[in-house]
Design a protein around this nucleic acid. Structure first.
Length: 445
RNA sequence: CGGAGCGUAGCGCAGCCUGGUAGCGCACCUGCUUCGGGAGCAGGGGGUCGGAGGUUCGAAUCCUCUCGCUCCGACCA
Protein backbone atom coordinates (compact mmCIF):
# COMPACT_ATOMS: atom_id res chain seq x y z
CA UNK A 1 0.00 0.00 0.00
CA UNK A 2 1.20 3.48 -0.84
CA UNK A 3 0.59 5.79 2.08
CA UNK A 4 -0.26 8.67 -0.26
CA UNK A 5 -3.28 6.69 -1.42
CA UNK A 6 -4.22 5.11 1.89
CA UNK A 7 -6.57 6.34 4.58
CA UNK A 8 -4.55 6.72 7.75
CA UNK A 9 -5.85 9.63 9.82
CA UNK A 10 -3.17 9.81 12.52
CA UNK A 11 -3.40 12.28 15.37
CA UNK A 12 -0.43 14.14 16.73
CA UNK A 13 -2.15 14.92 19.99
CA UNK A 14 -3.84 12.68 22.49
CA UNK A 15 -7.61 12.63 22.37
CA UNK A 16 -8.97 13.69 25.73
CA UNK A 17 -11.26 10.72 26.24
CA UNK A 18 -8.59 8.04 26.06
CA UNK A 19 -7.18 7.05 29.42
CA UNK A 20 -5.15 3.95 28.76
CA UNK A 21 -2.30 3.48 26.34
CA UNK A 22 -3.97 1.05 23.95
CA UNK A 23 -6.99 3.29 23.56
CA UNK A 24 -4.81 6.36 23.00
CA UNK A 25 -2.64 4.65 20.41
CA UNK A 26 -5.56 3.09 18.57
CA UNK A 27 -7.12 6.53 18.21
CA UNK A 28 -3.86 8.26 17.37
CA UNK A 29 -2.83 5.64 14.84
CA UNK A 30 -6.13 6.06 13.06
CA UNK A 31 -7.30 2.52 13.78
CA UNK A 32 -10.70 3.22 15.26
CA UNK A 33 -13.20 6.01 15.64
CA UNK A 34 -15.75 6.06 18.40
CA UNK A 35 -19.33 6.37 17.18
CA UNK A 36 -21.10 6.09 20.52
CA UNK A 37 -20.10 4.97 23.99
CA UNK A 38 -18.40 1.62 23.56
CA UNK A 39 -19.14 1.42 19.82
CA UNK A 40 -16.41 1.91 17.24
CA UNK A 41 -15.82 2.10 13.53
CA UNK A 42 -12.78 0.14 12.46
CA UNK A 43 -10.72 2.35 10.19
CA UNK A 44 -8.51 0.67 7.56
CA UNK A 45 -5.44 0.13 9.76
CA UNK A 46 -7.44 -1.24 12.68
CA UNK A 47 -9.53 -3.33 10.35
CA UNK A 48 -6.40 -4.97 8.97
CA UNK A 49 -5.22 -6.02 12.41
CA UNK A 50 -8.68 -7.20 13.37
CA UNK A 51 -8.79 -9.37 10.27
CA UNK A 52 -5.34 -10.81 10.97
CA UNK A 53 -6.34 -11.77 14.47
CA UNK A 54 -9.58 -13.24 13.22
CA UNK A 55 -7.66 -15.26 10.64
CA UNK A 56 -5.33 -16.72 13.25
CA UNK A 57 -8.30 -17.70 15.39
CA UNK A 58 -9.97 -19.39 12.43
CA UNK A 59 -6.83 -21.29 11.50
CA UNK A 60 -6.21 -22.59 14.99
CA UNK A 61 -9.83 -23.55 15.57
CA UNK A 62 -9.97 -25.50 12.37
CA UNK A 63 -6.64 -27.10 13.12
CA UNK A 64 -8.24 -28.41 16.31
CA UNK A 65 -11.10 -29.86 14.29
CA UNK A 66 -13.72 -27.23 15.08
CA UNK A 67 -16.20 -26.21 12.43
CA UNK A 68 -17.00 -22.62 11.49
CA UNK A 69 -20.50 -21.33 10.83
CA UNK A 70 -22.19 -17.97 11.29
CA UNK A 71 -25.17 -17.15 13.45
CA UNK A 72 -27.03 -13.83 13.29
CA UNK A 73 -26.52 -10.88 15.60
CA UNK A 74 -30.27 -10.53 16.17
CA UNK A 75 -32.07 -13.34 17.90
CA UNK A 76 -35.69 -14.07 18.76
CA UNK A 77 -36.47 -13.72 22.45
CA UNK A 78 -38.37 -17.00 22.51
CA UNK A 79 -35.18 -19.07 22.42
CA UNK A 80 -34.00 -17.26 25.51
CA UNK A 81 -37.31 -17.79 27.23
CA UNK A 82 -36.75 -21.52 26.82
CA UNK A 83 -33.48 -21.46 28.73
CA UNK A 84 -34.82 -18.99 31.25
CA UNK A 85 -32.13 -16.45 30.49
CA UNK A 86 -34.45 -13.87 28.91
CA UNK A 87 -35.49 -12.84 32.39
CA UNK A 88 -32.17 -13.58 34.07
CA UNK A 89 -29.93 -11.56 31.83
CA UNK A 90 -30.96 -8.10 32.92
CA UNK A 91 -30.20 -4.72 31.44
CA UNK A 92 -27.00 -5.82 29.78
CA UNK A 93 -29.02 -7.45 27.06
CA UNK A 94 -30.15 -5.06 24.36
CA UNK A 95 -33.81 -5.79 23.70
CA UNK A 96 -35.47 -4.77 20.48
CA UNK A 97 -39.00 -5.05 19.17
CA UNK A 98 -39.62 -5.54 15.47
CA UNK A 99 -42.51 -4.10 13.42
CA UNK A 100 -44.71 -7.06 14.25
CA UNK A 101 -44.18 -6.44 17.94
CA UNK A 102 -42.04 -9.53 18.34
CA UNK A 103 -39.41 -9.45 21.04
CA UNK A 104 -35.89 -9.65 19.69
CA UNK A 105 -32.47 -9.12 21.16
CA UNK A 106 -28.98 -8.32 19.98
CA UNK A 107 -27.10 -11.43 21.01
CA UNK A 108 -24.65 -11.14 23.90
CA UNK A 109 -23.77 -14.83 23.36
CA UNK A 110 -25.18 -17.79 21.47
CA UNK A 111 -25.73 -20.84 23.67
CA UNK A 112 -29.47 -20.91 23.04
CA UNK A 113 -29.20 -20.50 19.31
CA UNK A 114 -26.50 -23.11 18.84
CA UNK A 115 -28.47 -25.53 20.99
CA UNK A 116 -31.47 -24.92 18.78
CA UNK A 117 -29.39 -25.62 15.68
CA UNK A 118 -28.01 -28.74 17.25
CA UNK A 119 -31.31 -30.21 18.42
CA UNK A 120 -32.96 -29.67 15.07
CA UNK A 121 -30.32 -31.63 13.20
CA UNK A 122 -28.58 -34.08 15.51
CA UNK A 123 -30.25 -37.07 17.09
CA UNK A 124 -27.62 -39.77 17.42
CA UNK A 125 -24.42 -40.27 19.34
CA UNK A 126 -22.90 -41.25 15.99
CA UNK A 127 -22.82 -37.59 14.99
CA UNK A 128 -20.67 -36.70 17.98
CA UNK A 129 -18.28 -35.26 18.91
CA UNK A 130 -19.07 -31.90 17.35
CA UNK A 131 -17.71 -28.44 17.98
CA UNK A 132 -19.25 -25.52 16.11
CA UNK A 133 -17.98 -21.99 16.39
CA UNK A 134 -18.39 -18.59 14.87
CA UNK A 135 -16.77 -15.19 14.99
CA UNK A 136 -19.53 -12.65 15.26
CA UNK A 137 -20.32 -9.26 16.74
CA UNK A 138 -21.92 -9.31 20.14
CA UNK A 139 -23.54 -6.59 22.16
CA UNK A 140 -23.62 -6.18 25.89
CA UNK A 141 -25.08 -2.95 27.07
CA UNK A 142 -22.44 -2.27 29.70
CA UNK A 143 -23.37 0.42 32.15
CA UNK A 144 -20.00 1.95 31.78
CA UNK A 145 -18.02 1.11 28.68
CA UNK A 146 -14.38 2.24 28.84
CA UNK A 147 -10.83 1.58 27.72
CA UNK A 148 -11.67 1.66 24.02
CA UNK A 149 -12.12 -1.76 22.46
CA UNK A 150 -11.06 -3.44 25.69
CA UNK A 151 -14.44 -2.93 27.16
CA UNK A 152 -16.80 -1.82 24.46
CA UNK A 153 -20.46 -2.57 24.26
CA UNK A 154 -20.18 -3.97 20.76
CA UNK A 155 -17.35 -6.45 20.44
CA UNK A 156 -16.17 -9.20 18.12
CA UNK A 157 -15.91 -12.58 19.73
CA UNK A 158 -15.15 -16.09 18.73
CA UNK A 159 -17.51 -18.39 20.56
CA UNK A 160 -17.42 -22.13 20.15
CA UNK A 161 -19.77 -24.75 21.46
CA UNK A 162 -18.82 -28.37 22.02
CA UNK A 163 -21.30 -31.25 21.99
CA UNK A 164 -20.32 -34.64 23.36
CA UNK A 165 -21.95 -37.82 24.54
CA UNK A 166 -20.11 -38.20 27.82
CA UNK A 167 -18.49 -36.04 30.42
CA UNK A 168 -15.17 -37.61 29.54
CA UNK A 169 -15.59 -36.64 25.89
CA UNK A 170 -16.63 -33.15 26.89
CA UNK A 171 -13.50 -32.76 29.00
CA UNK A 172 -11.43 -33.71 26.00
CA UNK A 173 -13.19 -30.96 24.05
CA UNK A 174 -12.33 -28.63 26.92
CA UNK A 175 -8.68 -29.63 26.80
CA UNK A 176 -8.60 -29.34 23.03
CA UNK A 177 -9.80 -25.78 23.35
CA UNK A 178 -7.21 -24.98 25.95
CA UNK A 179 -4.38 -26.13 23.73
CA UNK A 180 -5.76 -24.43 20.63
CA UNK A 181 -6.07 -21.20 22.61
CA UNK A 182 -2.50 -21.44 23.85
CA UNK A 183 -1.33 -21.74 20.28
CA UNK A 184 -3.60 -18.94 19.12
CA UNK A 185 -2.25 -16.45 21.65
CA UNK A 186 1.31 -17.51 21.05
CA UNK A 187 0.96 -16.78 17.35
CA UNK A 188 -0.15 -13.28 18.28
CA UNK A 189 3.00 -12.70 20.27
CA UNK A 190 1.17 -12.90 23.59
CA UNK A 191 1.78 -14.77 26.77
CA UNK A 192 -1.72 -15.66 27.88
CA UNK A 193 -1.88 -17.67 31.05
CA UNK A 194 -4.73 -20.09 31.71
CA UNK A 195 -5.99 -19.38 35.20
CA UNK A 196 -8.57 -21.27 37.13
CA UNK A 197 -11.70 -19.16 37.08
CA UNK A 198 -14.75 -18.97 39.26
CA UNK A 199 -17.48 -21.18 37.93
CA UNK A 200 -20.22 -18.72 38.74
CA UNK A 201 -23.92 -19.44 39.04
CA UNK A 202 -23.94 -21.95 36.19
CA UNK A 203 -22.08 -24.31 38.46
CA UNK A 204 -19.73 -26.08 36.08
CA UNK A 205 -16.54 -27.22 37.72
CA UNK A 206 -14.22 -26.73 34.78
CA UNK A 207 -13.45 -23.26 33.62
CA UNK A 208 -10.27 -21.37 32.88
CA UNK A 209 -9.75 -17.78 31.89
CA UNK A 210 -6.79 -16.74 29.74
CA UNK A 211 -5.06 -13.66 31.07
CA UNK A 212 -2.50 -11.45 29.38
CA UNK A 213 -0.27 -9.81 31.94
CA UNK A 214 -0.47 -6.02 31.75
CA UNK A 215 -0.37 -3.26 34.34
CA UNK A 216 -3.69 -1.93 33.12
CA UNK A 217 -5.42 -5.28 33.50
CA UNK A 218 -8.79 -5.36 35.17
CA UNK A 219 -8.14 -8.42 37.30
CA UNK A 220 -5.59 -8.96 39.99
CA UNK A 221 -3.67 -12.17 39.35
CA UNK A 222 -1.44 -14.38 41.48
CA UNK A 223 0.96 -16.72 39.74
CA UNK A 224 4.10 -18.76 39.80
CA UNK A 225 6.60 -17.09 37.48
CA UNK A 226 7.34 -20.51 36.00
CA UNK A 227 4.04 -20.37 34.13
CA UNK A 228 5.22 -17.42 32.06
CA UNK A 229 8.13 -19.42 30.72
CA UNK A 230 6.04 -22.19 29.19
CA UNK A 231 5.59 -22.19 25.42
CA UNK A 232 4.18 -24.57 22.86
CA UNK A 233 6.75 -23.48 20.31
CA UNK A 234 6.70 -25.61 17.20
CA UNK A 235 5.34 -28.70 18.89
CA UNK A 236 3.08 -30.74 16.68
CA UNK A 237 -0.15 -31.57 18.45
CA UNK A 238 -2.51 -34.37 17.55
CA UNK A 239 -5.81 -32.95 18.75
CA UNK A 240 -7.47 -36.36 18.62
CA UNK A 241 -4.96 -37.80 21.05
CA UNK A 242 -6.59 -37.37 24.44
CA UNK A 243 -3.55 -38.20 26.50
CA UNK A 244 -1.28 -35.88 24.57
CA UNK A 245 -3.72 -32.99 24.76
CA UNK A 246 -4.38 -33.60 28.43
CA UNK A 247 -0.67 -33.72 29.15
CA UNK A 248 -0.19 -30.28 27.61
CA UNK A 249 -3.05 -28.93 29.70
CA UNK A 250 -1.47 -30.43 32.81
CA UNK A 251 1.83 -28.84 31.93
CA UNK A 252 0.33 -25.38 31.52
CA UNK A 253 -1.98 -25.57 34.52
CA UNK A 254 0.48 -27.13 36.93
CA UNK A 255 2.10 -23.88 38.14
CA UNK A 256 -0.07 -21.78 40.42
CA UNK A 257 -2.01 -19.16 38.44
CA UNK A 258 -5.28 -17.72 39.67
CA UNK A 259 -7.36 -14.59 39.57
CA UNK A 260 -8.46 -12.90 42.75
CA UNK A 261 -11.75 -14.77 42.52
CA UNK A 262 -10.16 -18.17 43.03
CA UNK A 263 -6.94 -17.17 44.73
CA UNK A 264 -6.03 -19.36 47.70
CA UNK A 265 -3.26 -17.79 49.78
CA UNK A 266 -2.44 -21.03 51.57
CA UNK A 267 -1.73 -22.79 48.28
CA UNK A 268 0.11 -19.75 46.92
CA UNK A 269 2.42 -19.98 49.93
CA UNK A 270 3.71 -23.29 48.66
CA UNK A 271 5.21 -21.59 45.61
CA UNK A 272 8.86 -20.71 46.29
CA UNK A 273 8.92 -17.09 47.35
CA UNK A 274 11.33 -16.06 44.60
CA UNK A 275 8.82 -17.15 41.97
CA UNK A 276 5.63 -15.73 43.50
CA UNK A 277 4.18 -12.90 41.47
CA UNK A 278 1.22 -10.63 41.96
CA UNK A 279 0.15 -8.56 38.99
CA UNK A 280 -2.72 -7.58 36.81
CA UNK A 281 -4.16 -9.25 33.77
CA UNK A 282 -6.49 -8.68 30.84
CA UNK A 283 -8.91 -11.48 30.15
CA UNK A 284 -8.76 -12.50 26.50
CA UNK A 285 -10.59 -15.80 26.57
CA UNK A 286 -12.45 -18.31 28.64
CA UNK A 287 -13.25 -22.00 28.31
CA UNK A 288 -16.13 -23.53 30.15
CA UNK A 289 -17.52 -27.01 30.55
CA UNK A 290 -21.06 -26.78 31.87
CA UNK A 291 -22.63 -30.15 31.13
CA UNK A 292 -26.32 -30.26 30.35
CA UNK A 293 -27.59 -26.86 31.43
CA UNK A 294 -28.88 -25.91 28.00
CA UNK A 295 -29.41 -29.36 26.55
CA UNK A 296 -31.68 -30.18 29.50
CA UNK A 297 -33.78 -27.05 29.35
CA UNK A 298 -33.96 -26.97 25.55
CA UNK A 299 -34.29 -30.65 24.83
CA UNK A 300 -31.03 -31.25 22.96
CA UNK A 301 -30.73 -35.00 23.29
CA UNK A 302 -29.10 -37.84 21.42
CA UNK A 303 -29.78 -41.55 21.29
CA UNK A 304 -26.99 -43.61 22.87
CA UNK A 305 -25.61 -46.95 21.67
CA UNK A 306 -27.96 -48.77 24.01
CA UNK A 307 -30.98 -46.99 22.64
CA UNK A 308 -31.67 -44.60 25.50
CA UNK A 309 -31.88 -40.85 25.06
CA UNK A 310 -29.65 -38.43 26.99
CA UNK A 311 -29.03 -34.69 26.94
CA UNK A 312 -25.69 -33.79 25.33
CA UNK A 313 -22.72 -32.65 27.35
CA UNK A 314 -21.83 -29.11 26.36
CA UNK A 315 -19.15 -26.53 26.81
CA UNK A 316 -18.68 -23.00 25.50
CA UNK A 317 -15.38 -21.44 24.74
CA UNK A 318 -14.72 -17.82 23.87
CA UNK A 319 -11.97 -15.56 22.59
CA UNK A 320 -12.37 -11.80 22.72
CA UNK A 321 -11.21 -10.98 19.22
CA UNK A 322 -11.66 -7.20 19.19
CA UNK A 323 -10.45 -6.94 22.77
CA UNK A 324 -7.23 -8.67 21.74
CA UNK A 325 -6.12 -5.58 19.83
CA UNK A 326 -6.15 -3.62 23.04
CA UNK A 327 -4.49 -6.41 24.97
CA UNK A 328 -1.70 -6.77 22.41
CA UNK A 329 -1.00 -3.04 22.48
CA UNK A 330 -1.04 -2.96 26.27
CA UNK A 331 1.53 -5.74 26.23
CA UNK A 332 3.61 -4.33 23.36
CA UNK A 333 4.28 -0.61 23.04
CA UNK A 334 6.70 2.12 24.02
CA UNK A 335 6.48 5.88 24.42
CA UNK A 336 6.53 6.39 20.65
CA UNK A 337 3.69 4.09 19.79
CA UNK A 338 2.58 0.58 19.12
CA UNK A 339 4.98 -2.32 18.50
CA UNK A 340 3.10 -4.99 16.57
CA UNK A 341 4.19 -8.59 16.93
CA UNK A 342 4.97 -9.97 13.47
CA UNK A 343 2.00 -12.34 13.63
CA UNK A 344 -0.63 -9.62 13.67
CA UNK A 345 1.03 -6.56 12.13
CA UNK A 346 -1.14 -4.66 9.66
CA UNK A 347 1.80 -4.39 7.25
CA UNK A 348 4.94 -6.47 7.31
CA UNK A 349 7.29 -3.55 6.87
CA UNK A 350 7.33 0.17 6.22
CA UNK A 351 9.39 1.81 3.52
CA UNK A 352 10.44 5.35 4.32
CA UNK A 353 11.50 7.43 1.35
CA UNK A 354 13.65 10.19 2.80
CA UNK A 355 13.70 12.29 -0.33
CA UNK A 356 10.46 12.03 -2.18
CA UNK A 357 10.86 13.40 -5.69
CA UNK A 358 14.52 12.43 -5.99
CA UNK A 359 14.77 10.15 -8.98
CA UNK A 360 17.21 7.68 -7.45
CA UNK A 361 15.47 7.28 -4.08
CA UNK A 362 12.03 7.14 -5.68
CA UNK A 363 13.03 4.35 -8.00
CA UNK A 364 14.89 2.48 -5.25
CA UNK A 365 11.76 2.62 -3.09
CA UNK A 366 9.56 1.48 -5.93
CA UNK A 367 11.90 -1.43 -6.58
CA UNK A 368 11.84 -2.41 -2.89
CA UNK A 369 8.08 -2.10 -2.78
CA UNK A 370 7.71 -4.42 -5.76
CA UNK A 371 10.32 -6.87 -4.51
CA UNK A 372 8.67 -7.25 -1.11
CA UNK A 373 5.30 -7.85 -2.72
CA UNK A 374 6.87 -10.41 -5.04
CA UNK A 375 7.98 -12.27 -1.92
CA UNK A 376 4.43 -12.33 -0.65
CA UNK A 377 4.89 -9.52 1.84
CA UNK A 378 2.65 -6.55 2.39
CA UNK A 379 4.68 -3.34 2.69
CA UNK A 380 3.46 0.15 3.54
CA UNK A 381 5.39 2.63 1.43
CA UNK A 382 5.48 6.16 2.84
CA UNK A 383 5.64 8.06 -0.42
CA UNK A 384 4.21 11.27 0.98
CA UNK A 385 6.02 14.54 0.42
CA UNK A 386 6.85 14.87 4.10
CA UNK A 387 10.01 15.47 6.03
CA UNK A 388 11.93 12.54 7.42
CA UNK A 389 10.96 13.27 11.01
CA UNK A 390 7.26 13.18 10.25
CA UNK A 391 7.62 9.89 8.40
CA UNK A 392 9.59 8.28 11.21
CA UNK A 393 7.10 9.47 13.80
CA UNK A 394 4.21 8.00 11.82
CA UNK A 395 5.96 4.67 11.37
CA UNK A 396 6.83 4.49 15.06
CA UNK A 397 3.27 5.31 16.05
CA UNK A 398 1.57 2.73 13.86
CA UNK A 399 4.11 0.18 15.03
CA UNK A 400 5.18 -1.81 11.99
CA UNK A 401 7.83 -4.23 13.26
CA UNK A 402 10.33 -3.44 10.50
CA UNK A 403 11.25 -0.27 8.66
CA UNK A 404 13.40 0.16 5.59
CA UNK A 405 14.83 3.65 5.34
CA UNK A 406 15.91 4.78 1.90
CA UNK A 407 17.86 7.97 1.34
CA UNK A 408 20.32 9.37 -1.17
CA UNK A 409 23.21 9.17 1.28
CA UNK A 410 22.95 5.41 1.74
CA UNK A 411 21.97 4.71 -1.83
CA UNK A 412 25.26 6.17 -3.03
CA UNK A 413 26.82 3.02 -1.52
CA UNK A 414 23.84 0.82 -2.52
CA UNK A 415 22.72 0.66 1.11
CA UNK A 416 19.38 0.96 2.80
CA UNK A 417 18.73 0.77 6.51
CA UNK A 418 16.67 -1.99 8.10
CA UNK A 419 15.38 -1.00 11.53
CA UNK A 420 13.69 -3.18 14.11
CA UNK A 421 10.85 -1.31 15.80
CA UNK A 422 11.12 -3.31 19.00
CA UNK A 423 14.84 -2.95 19.66
CA UNK A 424 15.48 0.21 17.67
CA UNK A 425 18.52 -1.45 16.16
CA UNK A 426 19.44 -0.59 12.59
CA UNK A 427 21.55 -2.38 10.08
CA UNK A 428 22.79 -1.13 6.73
CA UNK A 429 22.58 -3.52 3.82
CA UNK A 430 21.79 -3.69 0.15
CA UNK A 431 18.13 -3.46 -0.84
CA UNK A 432 18.25 -7.08 -1.99
CA UNK A 433 19.60 -8.20 1.37
CA UNK A 434 16.86 -6.29 3.18
CA UNK A 435 14.18 -8.02 1.12
CA UNK A 436 15.78 -11.40 1.72
CA UNK A 437 16.00 -10.80 5.45
CA UNK A 438 12.38 -9.76 5.75
CA UNK A 439 11.28 -12.74 3.69
CA UNK A 440 13.18 -14.95 6.10
CA UNK A 441 11.71 -13.28 9.18
CA UNK A 442 8.19 -13.77 7.93
CA UNK A 443 8.67 -17.23 6.54
CA UNK A 444 5.97 -19.52 7.82
CA UNK A 445 3.84 -16.77 9.25
C1' C B 1 -27.27 2.79 38.83
C1' G B 2 -24.79 6.21 42.98
C1' G B 3 -20.95 10.28 42.94
C1' A B 4 -18.03 13.96 39.95
C1' G B 5 -17.08 16.56 35.48
C1' C B 6 -17.03 18.05 30.35
C1' G B 7 -19.56 19.51 25.39
C1' U B 8 -16.53 26.33 21.78
C1' A B 9 -13.09 24.75 13.95
C1' G B 10 -10.79 17.92 12.23
C1' C B 11 -7.68 17.39 17.24
C1' G B 12 -6.02 19.80 21.97
C1' C B 13 -7.67 24.03 24.60
C1' A B 14 -8.75 29.51 26.29
C1' G B 15 -12.96 32.76 26.70
C1' C B 16 -18.03 31.87 30.84
C1' C B 17 -17.26 33.89 37.34
C1' U B 18 -18.11 40.01 36.02
C1' G B 19 -23.45 39.32 29.11
C1' G B 20 -21.53 43.71 24.30
C1' U B 21 -21.04 40.54 17.16
C1' A B 22 -15.54 34.22 19.01
C1' G B 23 -9.75 33.30 20.03
C1' C B 24 -4.88 30.29 20.51
C1' G B 25 -1.77 25.88 19.18
C1' C B 26 -1.73 21.72 15.88
C1' A B 27 -3.93 20.08 11.33
C1' C B 28 -5.75 22.04 6.33
C1' C B 29 -4.98 25.45 1.54
C1' U B 30 -1.33 28.94 -1.40
C1' G B 31 3.69 30.76 -2.08
C1' C B 32 8.92 30.92 -0.96
C1' U B 33 12.80 28.72 1.74
C1' U B 34 13.99 24.10 4.11
C1' C B 35 14.79 18.63 3.80
C1' G B 36 17.99 11.65 8.12
C1' G B 37 13.52 12.28 13.90
C1' G B 38 6.61 15.60 13.97
C1' A B 39 10.63 22.65 9.78
C1' G B 40 10.55 28.40 9.08
C1' C B 41 8.32 32.82 7.15
C1' A B 42 4.18 35.17 4.74
C1' G B 43 -0.80 34.85 3.31
C1' G B 44 -5.61 32.15 3.54
C1' G B 45 -10.13 29.04 4.50
C1' G B 46 -13.08 26.81 8.21
C1' G B 47 -17.16 27.42 14.08
C1' U B 48 -25.90 28.06 13.96
C1' C B 49 -20.20 27.93 20.87
C1' G B 50 -24.26 19.92 21.70
C1' G B 51 -29.86 20.91 21.28
C1' A B 52 -34.56 23.35 22.87
C1' G B 53 -36.85 26.98 25.68
C1' G B 54 -36.38 31.35 28.85
C1' U B 55 -34.30 36.22 30.96
C1' U B 56 -32.28 40.64 28.43
C1' C B 57 -31.83 46.14 24.04
C1' G B 58 -28.10 42.22 23.51
C1' A B 59 -26.44 35.27 25.55
C1' A B 60 -20.68 30.94 24.23
C1' U B 61 -21.35 33.61 28.99
C1' C B 62 -27.21 33.91 33.34
C1' C B 63 -31.75 30.34 34.27
C1' U B 64 -34.67 25.74 33.04
C1' C B 65 -35.07 21.32 30.45
C1' U B 66 -32.81 17.81 27.28
C1' C B 67 -29.11 14.90 24.54
C1' G B 68 -24.17 13.17 24.32
C1' C B 69 -19.40 11.96 26.26
C1' U B 70 -15.66 11.16 30.23
C1' C B 71 -13.85 9.89 35.14
C1' C B 72 -14.45 7.28 40.35
C1' G B 73 -17.50 3.31 42.48
C1' A B 74 -20.76 -1.24 41.98
C1' C B 75 -20.93 -4.77 37.42
C1' C B 76 -18.68 -7.37 33.18
C1' A B 77 -15.76 -11.11 27.32
Amino acid sequence: MRLSRYFLPVLKENPAEAQIVSHRYMLRAGMIKQQAAGIYSWLPLGFRVLKRIEQIVHEEQQRAGHIPLLMPTLQPADLWRESGRYDDYGQEMLRIRDRHDRDMLYGPTNEEMITDIFRSAVGSYKQLPLTLYHIQWKFRDEVRPRFGVMRGREFLMKDGYSFDLTREDALHAYNRHMVSYLRTYERMGLTAIPMRAASGPIGGDNTHEFLVLAQTGESEVFYDEAVTELTLGNRKVDYDNRDEVAAICDEFTAPYARTDETHDPSVFETVPEARRRVGRGIEVGQIFYFGTKYSDSMGATVVTPDGSRVPVEMGSHGIGVSRLLGAIIEASHDDKGIIWPEGVTPFHAGIVNLKQGDGATDSACEALYGALQARGLDPLYDDRDERAGAKFATMDLIGLPWRITVGPRGLAANKVELTCRRTGESEEMSPEAAVAKLAEIYEGR
